[in-house]
C-alpha cells in the first residue's frame, strides 16, 4: 500500500495511473467498436451479441456477473483517470501564476492542447451515451432487450447525430495524443518502438473515429434500417 501511495504522491506517478487507466479505455473503445460492427450483420447478429455480453461466462458465472465486473473496472479506471487529470491540471495551472503576453506554439501537435476540455467533453458524452443507449432514459423509443432497434432508431435524429459526431472528434483527439502520451509516460521507449508510437496512436484514433462515425451515417442514409 505504501508503494501505491508513494507512486501517487508525485505528479510522475499520477501520470502513470492516468496512462494505465487511459490504456484500459483505449482497449475498451477498440473492443467496443468491433462489437458495434455487428450492427452491419443485421438485427439477429447484433441482438445476439448484446445478449452474449450479458450471459458472458455462464454457466461458471451468474447472468450479467461478467458484465457488471467489467463495468465496475471501467468505472474505477474512469474515477482514477479523472481524479489524476484534475489534480495534475491544478498543479500545472498553479505553476504559471503569471501568463505570457505573447505565446508562440511550440507543442508537437494540436491534439495535446485539447486534452483537458476534450476530456471533460468525453466525460459528459459517456454519461449521455449510457443514458441514451444503455438505460434508455434519454431515448425516445427505447425497447429493453432490442439493442438493434434502439441503435437504429436512436440515430434517426439530427441532434443525436451531431452530439455523437462532436464526441467522436473529441475522442479522436484524446486518443491520438493520449495513446502516444501513454507510451511516453509508461516509459515505453526505444529506438525501434519510437518509430511506431506516432503511427499507432494516429491509426487507433483514425480507425476508432471513422468506424464509429460510420454508424450514424449508415442509419441516416438508410444503409442499416
Amino acid at each position: 500500500m505504501s508503494r501505491v501511495y508513494s507512486l501517487y504522491s508525485t505528479s510522475v506517478g499520477k501520470k502513470f495511473t492516468m496512462a494505465v487507466s487511459g490504456a484500459i479505455f483505449v482497449l475498451f473503445v477498440i473492443v467496443h467498436m468491433f462489437g458495434n460492427l455487428k450492427v452491419y450483420l443485421g438485427p439477429e447478429a447484433f441482438n445476439h451479441y448484446a445478449e452474449g455480453l450479458r450471459g458472458f461466462g455462464e454457466p461458471f458465472l451468474g447472468h450479467e456477473w461478467f458484465l457488471w465486473a467489467f463495468r465496475a473496472g471501467l468505472i474505477a479506471a474512469l474515477l482514477i483517470h479523472v481524479l489524476a487529470a484534475w489534480q495534475t491540471s491544478r498543479q500545472s495551472w498553479a505553476a504559471r501564476g503569471h501568463k505570457y503576453r505573447k505565446r508562440d506554439n511550440l507543442v508537437f501537435h494540436y491534439a495535446s492542447r485539447t486534452m483537458r476540455w476534450g476530456g471533460v467533453a468525453l466525460f459528459l458524452f459517456i454519461v449521455y451515451h449510457i443514458l441514451h443507449l444503455t438505460t434508455g432514459t434519454l431515448h425516445p423509443d427505447f425497447v429493453p432487450g432490442d439493442a438493434y432497434h434502439n441503435f437504429v432508431t436512436g440515430f434517426r435524429s439530427v441532434p443525436v447525430v451531431v452530439i455523437y459526431s462532436v464526441a467522436m472528434i473529441a475522442l479522436g483527439l484524446h486518443l491520438y495524443h493520449g495513446t502516444w502520451s501513454a507510451f511516453q509516460t509508461m516509459g515505453v521507449d526505444g529506438p525501434r518502438i519510437n518509430r511506431w508510437r506516432e503511427p499507432i496512436a494516429l491509426g487507433v484514433a483514425l480507425i476508432v473515429v471513422l468506424v464509429n462515425l460510420s454508424f450514424p451515417v449508415a442509419v441516416y442514409t438508410g444503409i442499416i434500417h
Binding site: S11, K14, K15, A94, F108, S112, G187, V188
Partner: peptide, 26 residues
C-alpha cells in the same frame, strides 16, 4: 507543473535534448 508530453520543451531546448530522457525517467 506536471508534464503532459506536449513536446514544447524539446522544441525550445537550445541543446536539442530529446524527450526520450523523460520516458527514461518515468
Amino acid at each position: 507543473g506536471t508534464c503532459t508530453n506536449h513536446g514544447a520543451c524539446e522544441n525550445a531546448c537550445p541543446k536539442e535534448i530529446k524527450i526520450e530522457v523523460i520516458a527514461m525517467l518515468n
